[in-house]
Simulated scan of single mutants.
Amino acid sequence: MPMRQDCKHFESRTYATGETVRKCNLDLAPEAPWRCPDDCPAYARRLADVNWAHGTLVTPPTPAEPEGEGIAELLDEAEDIVNAVGPEVLAELEAERRRNAGLLGRVRARLRRSP
């Protein structure tokens, strides 16, 4: 099923280059992010547009669905790359936190010794 533009989880953003991104904020169809799952359990009709900035009154037409096989595999490979980097990024953040905590402890100790 194509993206339901009347769903409260649907988001569309057009960039200065003219490229438009349409997506579901819940990512319920990761194998086909340009589609809504059939009988989506999270579909909820949008009731109001609060604090939204609208550029034009007409939403650009939805592009044709990508053709070809291997799209799901490509998305799986991209997810694997991101997941592989995750532990490394977390380790770097933890090391930085430890360095900052050690520095803060040394500063506090010097302030206590100061007259």
Results as ranks from 00 to 15, higher is better:
110 R>M: 09
115 P>E: 07
46 R>Y: 04
114 S>T: 12
46 R>G: 04
74 L>K: 14
79 E>Y: 07
11 E>D: 04
88 E>L: 08
75 L>N: 05
81 I>S: 03
69 E>T: 15
60 P>D: 08
94 E>C: 09
62 T>A: 08
75 L>G: 04
28 L>V: 13
67 E>Q: 10
101 A>Y: 06
39 D>W: 08
76 D>C: 03
81 I>D: 05
52 W>I: 08
42 A>V: 08
69 E>M: 10
107 V>D: 02
49 D>V: 11
76 D>H: 05
43 Y>I: 03
18 G>D: 01
86 G>A: 13
59 T>D: 11
3 M>Y: 01
6 D>C: 11
65 E>K: 10
90 L>P: 01
89 V>H: 01
21 V>L: 07
90 L>Y: 04
41 P>E: 01
95 A>D: 15
73 E>M: 12
74 L>Q: 14
67 E>N: 03
2 P>M: 05
83 N>F: 02
76 D>W: 06
55 G>K: 12
39 D>Q: 13
112 R>F: 01
27 D>I: 12
70 G>D: 10
6 D>E: 15
9 H>K: 05
5 Q>F: 10
17 T>A: 01
18 G>S: 03
109 A>V: 11
45 R>I: 13
35 R>D: 11
54 H>Y: 12
112 R>Q: 04
85 V>W: 04
6 D>N: 15
36 C>H: 09
96 E>L: 15
33 P>C: 09
71 I>Y: 04
